[in-house]
Computed example of a mutant assay.
Amino acid sequence: MTTATAVQPATPERPQPKPLLAEQAGRLELVTIRAFLLIPFLALVAAVPLMWGWGIGWVDLMLAAVFFTVSTLGITVGYHRYFTHGSFKANRPLRIALAIMGALAAQGSVIGWVADHRRHHAFSDREGDPHSPWLFGTSPLALARGFWHAHMGWLFGRDRTNIDRFAPDLAADPDIRMVDRLFPLWVSLSVLLPAVLGGILTLSWSGALTGFLWAGLARVAFQHHVTWSVNSICHMIGDRPYQSRDRSANFWPLAILSMGESWHNSHHADPTSARHGVRRGQIDISARLIWVFEKLGWAWNVRWPTPQRLARLAVSTDTTG
């Protein structure tokens, strides 16, 4: 007589995590990326000696300020706080408008930008972070290399973040896919519209030229460095009043230009919060705009910080990096 042996159910295998990186960028893509980075910078360098000849007018300054403000808020409110972190819900027109506004900054298409930033938070200041300044060590030479890498060097590499892992929600949204595919159009408009408006407002070809140079290319270059400074400076220098798993820091001199993004330690301590400047006197223009959207009924379920949550996140003594 034999005894039947109970068959143990097979343990289901855990699905393997999707890879961090997609296929590396091709040569044409690399050339395009480097052109977006270098041409505005070269324009900024060329604009300085040009200023001594016949200068920069009030029309150029006004156009540069408007395009800087709109496109920077597209990055900070749209790309960052809304699309990356879901700090609030938005109606469809606002959702599309924020994606287009962010594209005007010429810092990358919305889906790729969000994927990179989500990966940054998943591996902040560790292996896998696309732009940490701490990946090469702590010696002076390593920190100089790390600063360059975090500020802009990482953008010249061939690695591409895997969209399927880090931004599948945006890749599945037909509206956002359309805005993403039209990224070259938005960048073209970002540098050409200031030229058109400059020519119309001054009724001159010279106004069109200076509008293109200052409010177009030079503004984009300046804007790039403001955003990149959050990746580099705000992970190296500043106050760290809140607990986080990385070296993020609050750097007040950048608060206005970055529209509140340089309260970076506060952000990394509470990534989904709609307000980064959480203490009295910490200017956060992006949070104020989200507040306006909420009052208008265009945004809802806004994740505002609470005193109780801030108290739990606070460290006993502020530290300076």
Rank of each mutant, 00 (worst) to 15 (best):
2 T>R: 08
5 T>I: 13
9 P>I: 05
12 P>D: 06
12 P>L: 09
13 E>W: 14
14 R>D: 09
21 L>V: 07
26 G>F: 15
32 T>Q: 09
34 R>I: 15
37 L>Q: 06
37 L>H: 09
38 L>P: 15
39 I>Q: 03
39 I>S: 01
45 V>I: 13
45 V>W: 07
46 A>L: 07
49 P>K: 05
51 M>A: 04
56 I>G: 02
58 W>Y: 06
59 V>N: 00
60 D>P: 15
70 V>R: 04
71 S>A: 03
74 G>I: 10
75 I>P: 09
78 G>T: 15
81 R>W: 01
87 S>K: 06
88 F>C: 05
88 F>E: 01
91 N>G: 12
91 N>I: 11
98 L>Q: 14
100 I>Y: 12
101 M>R: 15
102 G>K: 15
104 L>E: 03
109 S>G: 05
109 S>H: 07
110 V>H: 04
114 V>R: 03
114 V>N: 01
115 A>Y: 14
118 R>S: 05
122 A>E: 05
126 R>G: 09
127 E>N: 07
133 P>H: 08
134 W>T: 08
137 G>M: 06
138 T>R: 10
139 S>A: 01
142 A>G: 03
146 G>E: 00
146 G>L: 02
154 W>E: 00
159 D>I: 08
164 D>V: 08
165 R>T: 08
166 F>V: 08
168 P>D: 00
169 D>G: 06
172 A>H: 09
177 R>A: 03
177 R>F: 05
183 F>P: 10
192 L>R: 09
193 L>F: 13
197 L>K: 08
200 I>C: 01
202 T>N: 06
203 L>A: 04
213 L>I: 12
213 L>F: 14
219 R>G: 01
223 Q>Y: 01
236 M>F: 12
236 M>K: 14
237 I>R: 14
238 G>S: 13
243 Q>M: 04
246 D>E: 02
252 W>V: 10
252 W>E: 01
253 P>F: 05
254 L>D: 00
254 L>W: 07
257 L>I: 10
266 S>T: 13
268 H>N: 07
269 A>R: 13
270 D>A: 11
271 P>W: 10
272 T>E: 00
272 T>M: 04
273 S>V: 14
282 Q>Y: 14
282 Q>C: 13
285 I>T: 08
286 S>P: 14
288 R>E: 01
288 R>W: 14
291 W>F: 09
294 E>W: 10
295 K>A: 08
298 W>N: 04
305 P>F: 09
307 P>G: 10
307 P>K: 13
309 R>T: 11
309 R>Y: 13
